[in-house]
């Protein structure tokens, strides 16, 4: 069984005006100039490498940190590298109000936890979630907790298939365990 409770420091992806950045596409997450890379250990250095204001993210982030992004995170292309670059950096989890459809699948299949948090815009606007806060979420629970601020916040728990694949480790191991 894989861990289903995650805690870590959050990075809230804000623009220069302090707003949660929406529609971050896969070229901003992992630029197509590096699509030829197939070794996951080399992908982390390019994470958010084309997102204005966040190009130094790979240097700043620490293992188990949690990324907080605006709606439609991972819009655009089907590249798995846009998920793998965060696995490469050992990012614990990504929270966003919604994800690009293909991006969401890619994350699920890799066993990389992505959680939907429909009220995230408001939580960030009201500074209930701020960069540097330590938070805790349970993938099967509808309530997360900001440990630093001692405040609960709502999240959408994982669906059964997403949770099962996550628990198995990846789509591959899930497929081998069940007939599919």
């Amino acid at each position: 069984m894989t861990e289903s409770v995650f805690s870590g420091k959050i990075w809230v992806l804000l623009d220069q005006k302090g707003r949660l950045i929406e529609d971050i596409d896969t070229d901003q997450i992992y630029h197509n100039a590096f699509l030829h890379i197939t070794d996951i250990s080399q992908m982390g250095q390019h994470a958010l490498g084309n997102l204005e204001g966040w190009k130094d993210f790979p240097q700043k982030v620490r293992p188990e940190d949690i990324l907080v992004a605006g709606r439609n995170f991972g819009a655009g292309s089907s590249r798995q590298q846009a998920v793998d670059c965060f696995i490469s950096l050992k990012v614990g989890l990504i929270l966003a109000p919604s994800f690009g459809a293909i991006y969401f699948r890619n994350a699920v299949n890799s066993g990389f936890p992505v959680l939907k948090c429909p009220e995230l815009d408001e939580l960030v606007a009201k500074q209930i979630l701020e960069t540097g806060d330590e938070i805790k979420v349970d993938l099967r629970s509808s309530e997360g907790s900001n440990i630093s601020k001692k405040t609960p916040f709502p999240v959408e728990p994982m669906s059964a298939v997403q949770y099962d694949i996550h628990q198995a480790g990846s789509l591959f191991s899930y497929g081998k365990e069940s007939a599919g």
Binding site: S78, R79, Q80, I102, R105, N109, S110, L171, F172, G175
Partner: peptide, 13 residues
């Protein structure tokens, strides 16, 4: 369109 993990699984299954 899907990522390479999905497509690998689709090739096999």
């Amino acid at each position: 369109g899907m990522g390479d993990v999905d497509i690998t699984f689709a090739f096999k299954t």
